[in-house]
Design a protein around this nucleic acid. Structure first.
Ligand SMILES: [Mn+2]
Ligand SMILES: [Mn+2]
Ligand SMILES: [Zn+2]
Ligand SMILES: [Zn+2]
Lengths: 121, 121
DNA sequence: AACATAAATGAGAATGATTATCAATATCAC
DNA sequence: GTGATATTGATAATCATTCTCATTTATGTT
């Protein structure tokens, strides 16, 4: 882990929720940590490629990142406060592979996310 | 259906696969149909709000639209040729509502898409 | 038809996230 | 240390999407 990775991934850890590159950049700057926007993007992309962070997209297309280094899973996200729960989804995994087989598709991946309002919101 | 809707939704129907606003605009222009980009976006957004088209996002964040006026369903998309199959997903619907209940979330929606390579590709 | 009024259209500008450049700086090998 | 190499960050460029607004087109009334 180089310097930038410590900074950016650290900020992501502190946030705990899905955050945008832009907001992480602002956050780091506010805390005095000098950083460039390009570095934030570079670090997040690398972390995504290494499956250290998960990525999803807001309705407007902006990418959101979250520290998720605990293997493949899916999320239930509160659209109001950002609270995020990691959920197991073996039923979905099974369904996906069946559908893939039935239609003769190979190398099938899936995008599965749940959005709603948490108890507090 | 006004003039623009006929043009844009018609182009979408001819395409049959998920297409971007930009590519639909180019397509209409190539076929001599005069159209503005703003109108294409407006028409697609309205159609999405009316559940006449489904929307998903490429990895780079660009929105893709597909004529899908047959009620709620999910897709299996070939990432190479764009071939798209509509798949039933009652197992996923059930799973989603169970997960929502277990975590005390309300008004939960889901994003579920499958991507892979079709038989031909 | 002629007219008033409202809706639709499209060219072009503005926005904003993401990506590309590239010179400055830090890190490493010897 | 010296030179090679990787990292950094300010800035510019890209590009999908949204906004503006003058012009055109549809709609309704007399
Ligand atoms: Mn899964
Ligand atoms: Mn569903
Ligand atoms: Zn909440
Ligand atoms: Zn294919």
């Amino acid at each position: 882990m180089n310097k930038s990775e410590v900074k950016v991934i650290g900020a992501l850890k502190r946030e705990g929720k899905f955050s945008s590159a832009q907001s992480l950049y602002q956050l780091l700057r506010k805390n005095g940590e000098s950083t460039g926007l390009a570095t934030v993007y570079r670090t997040l992309q690398k972390a995504a490629a290494e499956n250290i962070v998960d990525v999803l997209r807001k309705d407007d297309g902006e990418a959101l990142y979250r520290l998720c280094d605990t293997g493949h899973h899916h999320h239930l996200v509160c659209t109001n406060c950002g609270k995020t729960v990691e959920v197991e989804a073996s039923a979905v995994e099974k369904w996906a592979s069946t559908v893939a087989k039935n239609n003769g598709f190979k190398k099938v991946t899936h995008v599965v996310e749940l959005f709603g309002l948490c108890q507090k919101c």
